[in-house]
Write a protein that binds this DNA or RNA. Structure first.
Lengths: 146, 146
DNA sequence: TATTGTTATACTCTATAACTATA
DNA sequence: TATAGTTATAGAGTATAACAATA
């Protein structure tokens, strides 16, 4: 990403560009800090969701996270190969796979949350605590409105 | 995008997710509001840059905007077909194409800026003016730090 | 007949390599 | 030889369609 000074104020001040830059930095930080744990930011999202809501069927997970169910297959495949989740046929409806965190999955998730916290702190390193809280609060209200 | 109440606080409060939601809403608003003008958000970015910096060669535009020069070819193709920009061989170095806004391009850009302003106001409709300014200021400082 | 998980296919976006014309 | 623009090709990511098992 090139420096913004030369783009003109109309472009460099657009919210689209500001969000994109923040998102790109945060993705980069997550990639770096999650790499030692062997998972991606997307996979962290699935683990966080399972931790809050398990047990859920694959399709419920996909629906809640806003990804296609066909995409979820490969995502769960990857997490299962790493030993972080298991698929279990639902006894009540044998078409369904219930997806659960393994013990190793919980350990990895705990480490991944710490890594993500570090990534966020690094992104916000120019802000003091009150400003960081203010940013979160404003973003939450925007998200709630959509 | 599903509502966030059911995802658990660890996931729905992550900055990655908050940014992604804001970005998705803003992309959607831009798509709707720019549609009558026949351009995309990406194309608006090119027009804004040319307005601030023209004349520039294709490769300079691509470099500044952080897109590949091969991608820029199709982008400029589209804008030229719409009559918003023209390619002109640089007399000083005939390998280069200088890209310039046409008169129609300037008119469309002015309308597109208004549409983008509306999109941003709609995204921030829950915030008062001071809060919107605060958000921009915080995002600018984050972008500057990266 | 409808639904879950799966696979195969297609489509989009972008990046890489190769070609041309100029330098 | 190196560079700007272009084209062709290939790769990731994601969506659509079709299939098997189950309801």
């Amino acid at each position: 990403m090139p420096s913004d000074e030369d783009l003109g104020p109309q472009l460099s001040g657009r919210l689209t560009r500001l969000f994109k830059q923040a998102q790109r930095q945060l993705d980069q930080l997550h990639a770096e800090l999650l790499d030692p744990l062997g998972i991606t930011g997307h996979e962290l999202g699935v683990l966080l969701f399972l931790d809050a809501r398990e047990p859920e069927s694959q399709q419920q997970v996909a629906g809640r996270l806003g990804v296609d169910r066909t995409t979820m297959v490969a995502l769960i495949d990857g997490l299962e190969e790493k030993g972080l989740v298991v698929r279990r046929p639902d006894p009540a409806d044998r078409r369904r796979n219930v997806v659960e965190l393994t013990s190793e999955g919980r350990t990895t998730l705990a480490d991944a949350i710490k890594a993500s916290d570090r990534a966020e702190r690094q992104l916000l390193s120019e802000l003091d605590d009150a400003e960081a809280a203010q940013l979160r609060s404003l973003l939450r209200r925007i998200a709630a409105g959509g």
